[in-house]
Nucleic acid binder design. Structure first.
Lengths: 336, 336
DNA sequence: AAATTTTACGAAAACGTTTTCTCCGATTTT
DNA sequence: AAAATCGGAGAAAACGTTTTCGTAAAATTT
C-alpha cells in the first residue's frame, strides 16, 4: 500500500501541492530546476497519479468503451485489435462489454455508460436490437458514439461499415456464374442492417440473372447453434434442396460444412458455398471456403480514429461521417 | 449535457445531499417513504452517479484489468469470454490491454495500473518476458494479481493453468503410437512456462519410448509469421525430415499446414501433426487436425473467480491458489 | 413528568487532483 | 526613484461522492 500522492510528494520536496502538480504537468509557471527536482522525486517514490481524482477534476476519463455482441468471433476479435491499436497510441484505456446478442444487456450497458465513465463509445448492435431508444440517452449526454458493422438503419449517426449490398450481390453472382440455379441465403436477424443489405444484394443478383426468388430459401437463423444445425439440415435434406448457399455470417457456413459432412453432401459438386468470413483457416478447409472477407482490423482502426476525431472535436460542426470500406471476394474450392 | 448530480437531485427534492446519497444506497437512516421519493426522482431525471467521484471516495474502482499478448487468437478470445462472464455477474468493468508479445508494452501497462485504476489484474505473460520485476511494484501496492496460462515459473503467485506437461507427453506419445519415429516440436519462446512444460512432456515421452532426442528438432519460432513459415519449410524440406510434428501453439500448426500444401507433403501419410488448439474448424480442415484443446473459457472463468475471491478477501491468509485444469486430446485425421 | 432511546435527517470533512487567483520579491520600464 | 511587469510559487476552491458526526423531534422507558 504505497499510495504516494501529491501531498506526500510535496512534503518530501518542501513545496506546495499545487506547485508539484504544475511541475508534473510541465507548467510554464514552474522553473526548470524545480521541475527537475519534482520529476526526480516522483520517479524515486514511484508516484502514480490517482486516475479518479484526475478524471473527476478534469471531467475526462481517457477511456473509451467498446460494446460488441461477442468476442469469440474472428471479425470482432480483429476489430478490437484495430481499436486497441489506435486507443493505445492515443494513451486511452479500453473498456469492453459483451452483449451476447441480448438486447437487455445492451440496454443496461449503455445506461451504465451514461455516468461519464468513458469519453466515447464504439458499438456494434446485437441481433435483437429493434429500437435505438436506449441510445438517445447516451447521445443526449454528449458522449460521442460511433457504430461499426452492425449499425442502425434509421438514426443519423456516424458509422463505419463495409459495402454489404455489393458484397451480397457479388457473392450471389459468383454462385450463379459457377452454375447454381437455386441459391439459399443464411442470415442472422432481419433486424440487422447488415442482414438487410446483404440479403438485398442477394435478391437483386437473383433478379438480374432471372432466377426466381423463393422466400423459403432465405433462412433466418437463431442465436442457438444446435437449432441452426437443424434448420440447415432440414433445408439441405429436402428433395428440391438448393445447389448453392450464400451465408451472411461465418458461423452459419461452418454449420453448413458440418451438415454436409453429416448427410454426405459433396461440396462443391452438389452444393456450392460462399460466406462472409474472417477465418484464417478458410483456405485449409475441406474444401477450401470461398469468402467475402471484411477488413475487420481496418474497420476497428477507422472506427476508433473517427471516434477520437469526435472526442477531440476535430470533426467540424454537426457533420456526420459515414465511412464505407471494401470487402474482398476470395474464390476458393467451395464454389468451384 | 444533462449532468444530473446529487446536488441537483437534492435541490429538486428539498433534501440534503447526504440524505439523497444515503437514500440511493438504501441506508437504514432514511425512511422508507423518503427513499421512494428519491428513487422516483432519480429515475425521472435519469440520474447516473459519477463513477470517478465514487471511486475516489471509496477507493474502489469496480474494475479489473486483463493483460494478454493478443486478442485475435482463439484461446485468448475464449478466455476473455469467460472472464467477462464472471465480471459482468459481479457488476465489474473490464479493461483490456494487449501487449502484442512485447515486453516493453507489458511493462508500461503494468506501471499504469499501479495508480489504482483497477481492483485486480489478470495477466498472461508475453513471449519475451524474462523477468517479473515489473510485477513486484504492482504486487507491492496490494492489488490482487492472477496469472493464467502463461505464468511465471519462479514467483509464488496465484495461477490458473492446464496440465501442460501431461498434454505435451500425451500428444507426443500419441504420435509415437501412430508410428512416428522422428518427431519435431514447434514452440514459442523458451522463456514461457507453457513452452517449457509442454516441451518437457515431449522430451520425456521420447525418452520413455527410446526415441533419441535431437535438439535440432525443437524449433523455437519467432513472433513473425513469415519467418516461421521459412523455419518450418526448411525443417520439412530436409532429406531427413521429421515424420511427425507436435505444435505447442495453434498458429504454428496452421503454418505447418500451409507449408505442407506448398511442398506437397501429405498429411498424415508423410507427416503426422498434433497441436494445441482451440480452433472451431479443427475437424473441418483437410485433413482434420488432431488437437490438445484447452478449456479456454473455463480458464477465464476460474481465473476471474479466483481474482474476485482475492479482491473480496475471501481467500484466507496468505494462501496462494494454483488451479490446474485438464486439456483434452482429440484424435483426428492429421495423426492417423 | 423526566430521562432515555430511536428515528430521520443535515453539516461538513474527506478522497487526490487541477486550476484560478493571489502574492511577493526581483527585474524592467517610465 | 516610482511605477509597472514578470517569474515563481502558494492558498484555496472545485470536481461529485461517501461517511462520520451531530442534532432536533418523536417515541419509548423509567
Amino acid at each position: 500500500m504505497s499510495s504516494i500522492n501529491l501531498k506526500r510528494l510535496s512534503e518530501e520536496l518542501g513545496l506546495s501541492i499545487s506547485s508539484v502538480s504544475k511541475a508534473l504537468r510541465d507548467s510554464y509557471e514552474i522553473s526548470a530546476e524545480t521541475k527537475k527536482r519534482v520529476l526526480a522525486m516522483a520517479e524515486k517514490l514511484n508516484y502514480q497519479p490517482n486516475p479518479f481524482a484526475s478524471s473527476l477534476r478534469r471531467k475526462k476519463s481517457i477511456t473509451i468503451a467498446v460494446v460488441i455482441p461477442e468476442i469469440a468471433n474472428n471479425f470482432f476479435a480483429l476489430a478490437i485489435d484495430g481499436i486497441q491499436m489506435v486507443a493505445q497510441q492515443k494513451g486511452y484505456h479500453v473498456l469492453t462489454y459483451l452483449t451476447h446478442e441480448n438486447f437487455t444487456n445492451e440496454e443496461s450497458t449503455i445506461r451504465h455508460l451514461q455516468g461519464g465513465r468513458v469519453d466515447g463509445v464504439l458499438i456494434s448492435l446485437c441481433r435483437d436490437t429493434d429500437s435505438i431508444k436506449h441510445l438517445t440517452g447516451l447521445h443526449d449526454t454528449g458522449i460521442p458514439l460511433v457504430f461499426f458493422d452492425r449499425v442502425p438503419e434509421i438514426m443519423d449517426c456516424p458509422t463505419v461499415t463495409t459495402d454489404d449490398y455489393d458484397s451480397g450481390f457479388k457473392a450471389t453472382e459468383h454462385l450463379i456464374k459457377a452454375g447454381c440455379k437455386k441459391i439459399a441465403c443464411l442470415s442472422l436477424s432481419s433486424l440487422l442492417s447488415i442482414t438487410h443489405k446483404r440479403v438485398s444484394g442477394y435478391q437483386d443478383a437473383l433478379k438480374k440473372y432471372k432466377l426466381k426468388e423463393d422466400p423459403k430459401l432465405i433462412i433466418e437463423c437463431t442465436n442457438d447453434n444446435a437449432s441452426n444445425l437443424q434448420l440447415i439440415k432440414k433445408l439441405l435434406s429436402k428433395k428440391d434442396r438448393p445447389d448453392g448457399v450464400f451465408s451472411t455470417v461465418e458461423k452459419l457456413a461452418i454449420s453448413t460444412y458440418y451438415v454436409c459432412n453429416e448427410i454426405k453432401l459433396k461440396i462443391p459438386q452438389q452444393l456450392k458455398i460462399i460466406s462472409f468470413s474472417n477465418l484464417r483457416t478458410a483456405s485449409l478447409l475441406a474444401p477450401s471456403l470461398s469468402t467475402i472477407t471484411q477488413p475487420a482490423f481496418e474497420i476497428g482502426k477507422e472506427s476508433a480514429s473517427l471516434l477520437f476525431r469526435m472526442i477531440e472535436k476535430k470533426t467540424f460542426g454537426n457533420r456526420i461521417d459515414k465511412i464505407v470500406l471494401k470487402s474482398s471476394l476470395i474464390e476458393r474450392n467451395s464454389s468451384k
